[in-house]
Every structure is written in C-alpha cells, then in structure tokens.
Design a protein around this nucleic acid. Structure first.
Length: 600
RNA sequence: UGCCCGAUGGUGUAAUGGUAGCACGAACGACUCUGACUCGUUCUGUCUAGGUUCAAAUCCUAGUCGGGCAGCCA
C-alpha cells in the first residue's frame, strides 16, 4: 500500500515565510529558491521536526526549487553515524512521493564567477540546479550534505576574517570567557587578547589547527561589541579546540567551528536563499548577518527567518526526555510505537502523508502555541480511512454457536474491501457454526441504547446475516462461556430478507477458520496534555499505554507484509509490526482507534 | 528593575486599513450491514486603555500577560 494522494489537502499553504519567498521571487532578488533542513545527528527525528521538514521541502516543492538535507555536525562529541543514517531514512520516508525531487544533492566544483577563498581548491559549490535532475525517482537517492565537508572552506573564511581584523585568538579560560561576557543587563568587558595583531592571530590560529594547544586553551572569536545589549554579539566564539575525531570528517581536525559561524556560511556555500529555523534563534540573527556581511562575499547572501516549533498535546518531544524513557525502559527503544519519533510513528503504522498533513494544516507562525493532538489524529484517521482495506478481527473473543448451522457446514459470504474506493472489490468470507464475537458486543444486562447483542435480541453479523440470541451458557463461577443463537440465513446479502433492518451490526470471525495473532493496543503515553510542564513527567505516565491481547483474525490476514495497513472494522487501524511479526506468529500494532461517539 | 519576540473562539490558524473566515473539537440531528465515514444545525474569538482614520484584528502610544536570550551545545 502506498500513501494515498492527499485529497483534503489545502491547495497551497500560505504563511508569512511563503509570502517572503514569493516577494523575493517577484522582485528578482532570487530566481531559484533553495532551502535546507539542518539536523544535528545527535538523536532521532521526531514529530516536532516534521514541521521544519515540511516547511523547507514544501517551499522548495512549491517553487520548483531545492532543499538540502544537511547535517549540522560541528560538535563531534555529541554525534554518531547511527543517527546520521536514521535521519536520512526518516527524511526520505517522510518526503517520498511528495517532495523527493526537491532533495538537493552534492556536486563539487567551483561556481561560475566564484572567487575562491584564500586559494582554497576544495570549495564546495552549490548543488546542481533542479532542472539537471533526470527524474524524480532517482533524485531521492541523493546524498545528504554535511557541514563538516566545509571545514576547509570554513577555515579559509576564518583566515579571511582575521585578516580583515574581524576575528582574534583569545586565551581566556572558559570560566573567564563567561565572566567577561557580563550579563544580559550588564555590559561585558573586552578580552585582554582582543587587540592582537593580524599576524599574531594568523600564527596562533594556524597553530591551534596544528594541534599545539590542549582543549579549551584558546578560541577564535569574532571582534564585535562586548557592550552589545544582545549577548550573542559580545565577541562570540567561532572556533574551539577539541582533540577528538569526527564521525564524518575523520581525524584531521582538532579545532571545530561553532554553530553560529558554521551555519550561515554553510547556507551560503550551498546557495541557500532562505534559512528557516525556530524562534530561539531570533537573537542569533544579527550574528548570522554580521559574519556573512563582514566577509565581502560575492554572491547573494542567505537570510534567516524564524518560526514557532510544533508542540502537540500529550506528547514529549525533547531528545533528552525521550532518551530518558528509552534508558529507563519505559518504552522498548527509539522505535517504540508509543514514541513520537519518526521511526516509532512509522512502526506504529502512521502514513507519511498523515504526518505531512498535520504539519501543513497547523500552519506557521511566530508565536508558540500548543497544538491539540486531535488535529493529528483526525489527519491520521482520514488518510487511513481512504487507504486501508477493511478486515474482521476479534480482539477479546467470546464463542457464539449458531445452532441451526450444522458442524462442518460453511455459508459463503462476501465482504467489501474498502467502501471508500470508487469501485470497491470484495473477498469471500465463510460463516460457520461456531464464531467468535467481541466480548464487549454482548451484554446480559444492557445499558440504555445498547444496540448490540442482548438476551432475546437481534443483531447483524457484518457481511453475513441477522442472528437472535437464544441462550447464555455459563460455567460454575457464573462467567459466560458461550452464546447460542439462531441465524436467519434469509437476511444474507442477495437473499429475500437482505434489507431487514436491525439496530446493531457486529463483527465476527469463524472459529474454525480464523488465525491467531498478538495485537498490541497502544494508547497515549501520558495522562496529561502537557507532560513537559509537569515537575516530573514520569509521574503522569499512562499505565495503560500498551495492552497486549491474543486476537482472532479472519484468514485473509495471513501472509501479509510488514507495513501493510488495515482497518479492523469497528475497532481501528492496524499494521503488522515491522520488528516482531513473523509469518507463524503475527503481531499487529494498533495505529489508532476509530472515532467513538458511543463511548460512555 | 537589559535586549529581542509575540498576543484572534476550548485548540491551531486566516483576514496585509473595508462583511472576523477555515480546520480541529464539542453538542444535537439525518444516514448507515462499521455507534466509523458522510451530511445538516448549533457553540465560543480580535489582551487592556487611549489615539490616528469615514473605517482598526491590522497603524501609533502606554500598560498587561506570555515566550526567548548570559554553552568552548545546536
């Protein structure tokens, strides 16, 4: 099954960033739009990242532009190849068939008219234009970008900044650096090393790179303004010394650039036009601009715009907190289907299209809000309703005997695979003397307006016939063990009384033909809308976030592939578990229940 | 009592000086061989106070409230 085309999609999203992009195109400031999604490979991608991915790839897609997946890998101490690979997989899965043709890819070589910095022969050019991509399907094989691939270029730019008197090597210890920075309401103090000569700075910086100094002994700093009301402008650090290898760049470096220095220049090198990030970077924007503007760069400069993060209710999104759930075995791993990680959501059965719809429909603004997870659940149910074939499955079985059907006799019925499709297909279904129905679908003492099976009552077995309850069989303890009914075979589809109406229709499976499966019923992980706001989110865990049942399924559910999604009628949407399901021992995950307006 | 950003129904958003609209949600009803889907009806809003204007959610001023910023993290 592939993700359905998004029928209900809003035509084209509109927000203040798209307005800016449109204006830049209209004014001729840019002729091609280039964006980027820049995760640090220090953890798994989650629901919160979906907004950024959809925004960046969406804008590229709408403008026939490009979006680079670029790893912001400037801090080797926190990063791992495992995360790089997981992120690539997740991003490609999320945009497959939607914006994969916008995924930029790496191309080496100097740009036309580019002035190589400091004679550096290894300048990374902007990727080839979108028009050079032969076909959308192959484009998704594109390689991701790495900020660490630009280390040589970044170093050359740093030399340039030093020569221009805009950067200096500082010998202050980390503690003193903090002290000299002052406080937000208190100006800082100039570093005693601030006025070293260009030659001395050049020499010292080269020796930093050569590994002559221990970690944290010296830094390279921008020379801006220690009294600036914006603390990010108080001579921010550009490079630090770290004698560690790098997961992507190898062992050649012991100085590493910091985010603010690496990010703007990486954007520039890639030809990014609009650099979109979250609100906490607003105070960094003047620094982003300062670095680019002080280098006298020949090409158009990228510009940074900020938007609010996506924060859904009943969800914990920070990597640190998710890690704690994993470490303390609250969940089974990063791919636990209860987690908001992309791997977890995928394993749970969430289609990429539902994630995209959630991101697009919740919009882009410049103020933080909290989004009701119901918006996501609605998008999810809607995608699944259109795409998933229907099947019958009984989660908590109770035996029901149709006394007027002989043992061994089968009554052939037909079931519709998906009533939402334009020309629905059908499959055969065998009704037998013994069937299982859902325990909840029977009540000896029914509450008011109970439409299901009750003493003396009639109900329809979906796709089969109407039955009447004659007798309730109990064991010594008084527990119901069996329901004995008569089947009115004349009410089957195509038979004389097919149109007979009863208030309730229930699902069932043949006791002799059904197959067994483990079904994992997932619910939200937390009992409160804002778990992150609790003093300890561990105290608001939902004890029923996972319930496992041994279910009975109709036989057509055998031999299915991991990732296939079904609606179990009247219950919800389910998918084969990609990790634990085996042909001889099926495991299904409940993605989400059906909407339930009957729930008391 | 430093700087920056923001404020539209319960929630997420739109309206770019000219009818406050959409979605989610909730309630009720219709339909139904899924108490689903679909359809219909209803519900609730421009933070406050001034000002500019024929006209303000939108522009200005002040206030209130909320968020962010002082990593050699990103």
């Amino acid at each position: 099954m592939t993700d359905s085309e998004n029928k209900a999609a809003p035509s084209t999203p509109s927000d203040f960033i798209r307005d800016i992009v449109a204006a830049d195109l209209a004014s001729g400031r840019h002729t091609e739009i280039v964006t980027r999604f820049p995760p640090e490979p220090n953890g798994y991608l989650h629901l919160g990242h979906v907004r950024s991915i959809c925004l960046n790839f969406g804008i590229a897609r709408e403008n026939n532009g490009r979006c680079n997946l670029r790893f912001d890998d400037t801090n080797p101490a926190k990063e791992e190849v495992e995360y790089v690979e997981a992120i690539v997989t997740d991003v490609k899965w999320l945009i497959a068939g939607w914006a994969d043709h916008c995924l930029g890819f790496k191309a080496k070589g100097a740009l036309p008219n580019e002035q190589l910095v400091d004679g550096n022969p290894d300048f990374f050019a902007a990727p080839v234009p979108n028009s050079a991509i032969p076909n959308p399907q192959s484009a998704i094989k594109a390689e991701p970008f790495f900020a660490s691939d630009y280390f040589e270029t970044l170093y050359a730019y740093a030399l340039d900044l030093i020569r221009r008197g805009k950067a200096y090597v500082c010998d202050l210890s980390p503690e003193d650096t903090e002290k000299y920075r002052g406080a937000p309401d208190q100006p800082g103090t100039d570093s005693p090393w601030r006025n070293r000569s260009v030659d001395e700075n050049l020499d010292l910086f080269a020796r930093m790179r050569a590994g002559e100094y221990p970690d944290a002994a010296r830094t390279l700093r921008a020379k801006i303004d220690m009294a600036s009301p914006n603390v990010w402008l108080r001579d921010p650090l550009l490079y630090r010394i770290r004698h560690v290898g790098h997961h992507h760049a190898g062992d050649g470096w012991c100085i590493y650039p910091l985010y603010d220095y690496a990010h703007c220049l990486s954007d520039y090198v890639e030809g990014v036009t609009h650099s979109l990030c979250s609100l906490e970077f607003v105070p960094h924007r003047p620094l982003y601009d300062w670095i680019l503007e002080n280098l006298s760069l020949p090409r158009a400069l990228p510009r940074q715009y900020e938007f609010a993060k996506l924060l859904p209710t009943y969800t914990l999104l920070s990597k640190r907190n998710i890690l704690r759930l994993v470490k303390e075995n609250i969940v089974s791993g990063w791919d636990d289907p209860r987690l908001p990680t992309i791997v977890g959501l995928r394993r749970r059965g969430v289609p990429a299209a539902a994630l995209r719809r959630f991101a697009i429909e919740t919009g882009i603004t410049t103020y933080n809000g909290i989004t009701d997870i119901a918006v996501f659940e609605h998008a999810l149910r809607d995608e699944l309703n259109n795409a998933a074939e229907r099947r019958l499955a009984v989660l908590r079985p109770i035996k029901l005997v149709l006394t007027n059907i002989a043992p061994g006799e089968t009554v052939e019925c037909e079931a519709v695979n998906n009533p939402q499709s334009e020309s629905p297909t059908k499959r055969p279904l065998a009704l037998t003397r013994e069937v299982f129905i859902e325990f909840d679908d029977f009540a000896e003492v029914p509450p008011p307006k109970f439409f299901r099976l009750k003493p003396g009552g009639e109900v329809r077995l979906k796709y089969a016939c109407i039955i009447k309850l004659d007798e309730i069989v109990k064991d010594d303890s008084g527990a119901v063990t069996e329901l004995r009914c008569t089947a009115d075979l004349s009410t089957r589809s195509g038979h004389p009384n097919a149109d007979k109406k009863v208030k309730g229709t229930i699902h069932w499976v043949s006791a002799s033909e059904c197959i067994d499966a483990e079904v994992r019923l997932y619910d939200r992980l937390f009992t409160v809308p804002e778990p992150a706001g609790e003093e300890d989110f561990m105290k608001v865990l939902n004890p029923k976030s996972l319930e496992t049942v041994n279910a009975k399924l109709e036989p057509s559910l055998a031999g299915r592939c991991a990732g296939e999604r079904f609606q179990f009628e009247r219950l919800g949407y389910f998918t084969l578990d990609s990790r634990d399901s085996k042909p001889d021992r099926l495991v299904f995950n409940r993605t989400i229940t059906l909407r339930d307006t009957w729930a008391k």
